[in-house]
């Protein structure tokens, strides 16, 4: 279970759908691992507006590391791949970020996001709904979201 996925998961129990407490799910007894994944800055900048930063901060606190309180800002840019090729410099660095000029600051933010969202995985543990208290087990990185039929 990557933190990216956890940021989109909410409790599937019917009674919890309307409750604001059903998101995010809270990690318990989590065992972490890191897995190397190809760095994809374009995807990250696409995802950033959709992330619930508050939820991400909460999840990361539960897993024992801290993130800045405010959502990092990335300047809006056209996210099509053409921006990468339309680089005036001519020589293009393959993993050199989104557009032509990515400042060091942005690059650092993106790298940080990549590490947190893509490479940090919960191998074993539980996710608990803040509203109904239902526990979703995580086993070998796979979250179990099967519900008993009376909760559907």
């Amino acid at each position: 279970m990557k933190l990216l996925t956890a940021n989109f998961l909410s409790c599937a129990v019917k009674a919890c759908k309307s409750s604001p407490l059903s998101f995010p799910l809270h990690f318990r007894e989590a065992e972490l691992a890191s897995k190397s994944v190809p760095y994809n800055p374009l995807l990250l900048s696409n995802l950033l507006p959709r992330l619930d930063w508050q939820a991400l901060v909460t999840s990361s606190k539960e897993l024992g590391f801290t993130l800045p309180d405010a959502k990092p800002e990335l300047p809006l840019r056209s996210t099509t791949t053409t921006t990468t090729t339309a680089n005036d410099d001519g020589d293009m660095n393959m993993d050199g970020g989104i557009g032509g000029g990515v400042s060091d600051e942005e690059e650092k933010t993106l790298r940080m996001l990549h590490k947190v969202l893509m490479e940090t995985e919960v191998v074993e543990g539980k996710m608990v709904c803040g509203s109904c208290g239902f526990e979703y087990g995580i086993h070998q990185t796979v979250g179990n979201f099967l519900l008993p039929s009376h909760l559907v």
Binding site: L4, S10, A12, F23, V37, Q140, G143, F145
Partner: peptide, 27 residues
Amino acid sequence: ALDREVDGDLLLGDMGQGLPFRAGSFD
């Protein structure tokens, strides 16, 4: 899938029970 070390994140779930994601998650 785990043995094959796929890149995606995996979930065990039943699509007939509804998908456990918040609104507007996916492209």
